[in-house]
Design a protein around this nucleic acid. Sequence first.
DNA 1: AACCGCGACAACCGCGAAGCT
DNA 2: GAGCTTCGCGGTTGTCGCGGT
Length: 246
Amino acid sequence: MVQEETRKGPWTEQEDLQLVYFVSLFGERRWDFIAKVSGLNRTGKSCRLRWVNYLHPGLKRGRMTPQEERLVLELHSRWGNRWSRIARKLPGRTDNEIKNYWRTHMRKKAQEKKRALLSSSSSSTSISSSLSLPDNPGVNFSPKSKSEEGSLHDKGSCSRDLDLVVKAAGEVSREEGYSMDQIWEEIASSEEVSSIQGYYKSFSPPMIWDYCSDSLWRSNEEDMKMLLLMGGGDLVISNYGHGRGS
DNA sequence: AACCGCGACAACCGCGAAGCT
DNA sequence: GAGCTTCGCGGTTGTCGCGGT
């Protein structure tokens, strides 16, 4: 038995096309089955992810709007890292997208706070010693990349409540180590208190995510088959957008 | 022009829950 | 009820493009 190795990495347009077609035939379930019969050399898991995060009709692409940003902050302060739950309240956005946004956004905030803290307490060594500066390797900030270590040269603006939270976080971290995520959580919850009150009450978007999945797609099924037969994949995929710069 | 830092996004992995036999 | 399979979630890593130096 010579089994081809399962493909990993970026999806090609052809793979997207195949996946879209087979999901249209069999629906959004039995991903292992779809992976098998489609001839895609992918795991069911990978197929599902690709569909949910990229190929699903009705996905919004592009930057988050200010409303969406506020809603993410609000919901995160309520539910924590329940990304899928948060995503259900943002039609067209995926949990992955929100998660990525959150990490980027909060990382930036945390870095700004760290810098603010350092500049405001340069005379005191107690707080700066709690942060994971290059010369303080013992503290659990666990940066995954150079970018997370933060540059000391940039300037950032910030609010008072954030200062308090990060200061408090610094106190704790001195005691026993404190993860970046925990600090971000604190930052977010303080932001929510200061700036987002009442927003959620006035914003309750329709849950199109809940009903768009099958019905929307099915209307295109015949078109899809035609395009496959005609070799018109480029057209279809361009409608979904494909990777960067589409 | 080359390099670097950073943001944005895609994709993988591990684990637990849910569903099925 | 046990064992197995499938699915979904959250965390993490990798890659690419862009702007600044």
